[in-house]
Amino acid sequence: MPKIDISFILLSAICLIIGIFLGIWMAAAHDFQFAPVHAHLNLLGWASLALFGLIYRAYPTLQASWLAKAHLLLSGSAAFAFPLGIYYSIAHEQHGLAIVMSFVTLAGVVIFFVNLVRAFFFASASAPAVAQPIA
């Protein structure tokens, strides 16, 4: 499996591509009912995943924990499934997926926070959590 930072950044780029295609489709059709889907793809997908990836890149100690893999699994899957759930809510009035994925999104962010606290306050002195220059 690729490094956590690279995985987050690649997933973010996929979300950006899908979000842009959706935005173009909505503009061409003059139908913006799925604007919340577009917004969540761009915010949870592109922006959040890219920031997570850059933070993992800046602080490599964060990647050493199983929490990083759990975070990637939860946030990576939620970035795609939560907008899909919003689509089903709008198009078919089926809210279950959106509700479940909102909690998966929350769980991913909480795990990220726990990993930050672990690395910044409880990491061993041999593995500093300070940012390293990118080579």
Rank of each mutant, 00 (worst) to 15 (best):
P2K: 08
K3F: 13
D5F: 11
F8I: 12
L10N: 12
I14L: 15
C15E: 07
G19I: 02
I20K: 07
L22E: 11
L22V: 08
A28P: 00
A28L: 13
D31K: 05
F32H: 13
F32M: 11
A35G: 06
P36Y: 04
P36S: 06
L41F: 10
N42R: 10
G45V: 05
G45M: 03
A47E: 04
A47C: 06
A47H: 03
A47Y: 07
A50I: 15
L54E: 01
I55L: 09
P60R: 01
T61F: 00
A64S: 09
S65R: 05
A70T: 12
L73W: 14
L73P: 03
L74N: 08
S75M: 11
A78V: 07
A79H: 01
A79Y: 01
A81P: 02
A81H: 02
P83S: 05
P83Q: 04
G85W: 07
I90T: 10
I90K: 10
H92T: 02
H92Q: 08
Q94S: 13
G96K: 07
L97P: 03
A98S: 12
F103V: 11
V104T: 07
I111Q: 00
I111W: 01
F112T: 02
V114Y: 03
V117R: 08
V117C: 05
A119Q: 00
F120E: 02
S124E: 05
S126D: 06
S126P: 00
A127T: 14
A129I: 00
A131S: 15
A131Y: 00
Q132P: 08
Q132S: 15
